[in-house]
């Protein structure tokens, strides 16, 4: 059975390690914060100027002066720090953020990512995505394996304008966990009950399938 968005978030949360500084993008990546394994502490960064972002506020805690990069109201954890956008992207560029999780429209077998622009449609802008993918030490993409038309989003080459080149390390979809290897996508895990054949069929780029592909442990 393929995963829902919560399942994808839960699987990505297994990648978190104690002490990591993590930036979560909008959408499925945001859900990762709900599944942090017990006994580990990670600190969330929001690129509008927070290190130590906490959960959404209660009604009484709402503060109009405190939002995240998705423009949502948030809280601060004890020990949080606040700074401006220039410093925030400085720490991103300088490689201080250990892990970035973001969504994508397409990923290539070389690790290129496209997630900001569809020619012919209104372009809203790249926000901080280009900066994050150009500099984060480790980038995990959370996305569906295929687009709404059923076409693979894991391609030999991206067809959409790129956000960044050769930057994605790992991809978690509703059916598989893959990493970017020297020669293409390497299939690491499959969702419970999903066959290798289905993943092969839905992956347009070069896919390397090891002899044994374990099921995700969720």
């Amino acid at each position: 059975m393929s995963l829902d968005k919560f399942g994808i978030a839960k699987r990505i949360a297994q990648e978190l390690k104690d002490g990591m500084y993590v930036n979560l993008g909008i959408g499925i990546p945001t859900l990762v914060a709900n599944f942090i394994p017990e006994n580990i502490n990670v600190i969330f960064q929001s690129e509008n100027g927070i290190l130590g972002m906490g959960p959404y506020p209660t009604e009484a805690e709402v503060d109009a002066d405190l939002i995240n990069a998705g423009k949502e109201t948030v809280t601060l954890i004890k020990g949080a720090a606040l700074f401006d956008s220039a410093e925030s992207f400085g720490m991103i560029r300088a490689g201080k953020i250990d892990l970035t999780v973001l969504g994508a429209m397409e990923v290539s077998e070389k690790g290129d990512i496209a997630n900001w622009k569809i020619p012919g449609k209104m372009v809203k802008g790249m926000g901080g995505a280009m900066d994050l993918v150009a500099s984060a030490k480790n980038i995990i993409v959370a996305m569906m394996h295929t687009n709404p038309k059923g076409e693979s989003k894991l391609l030999a080459q991206c067809s959409l304008p790129l956000t960044g080149m050769a930057c994605v390390k790992k991809i978690v979809t509703e059916i598989a966990v893959l990493e970017i290897g020297e020669d293409g996508f390497i299939l690491l895990e499959r969702a419970p009950g999903v066959t290798v054949e289905e993943i092969v069929q839905k992956t347009a780029g070069k896919l390397i399938v090891p002899d044994y592909v374990p099921e995700m442990q969720l």
């Binding site: 690129e47 220039a86 790249m126 280009m130």
Partner: peptide, 20 residues
């Protein structure tokens, strides 16, 4: 924007912050 009444220059957020 679609009517050509407005010009827009989209700049990556970190680049924009640092340029300023």
């Amino acid at each position: 924007l679609l009517n050509g009444e407005l010009e827009v220059d989209l700049i990556p957020q970190g680049t924009l912050a640092t340029r300023i």
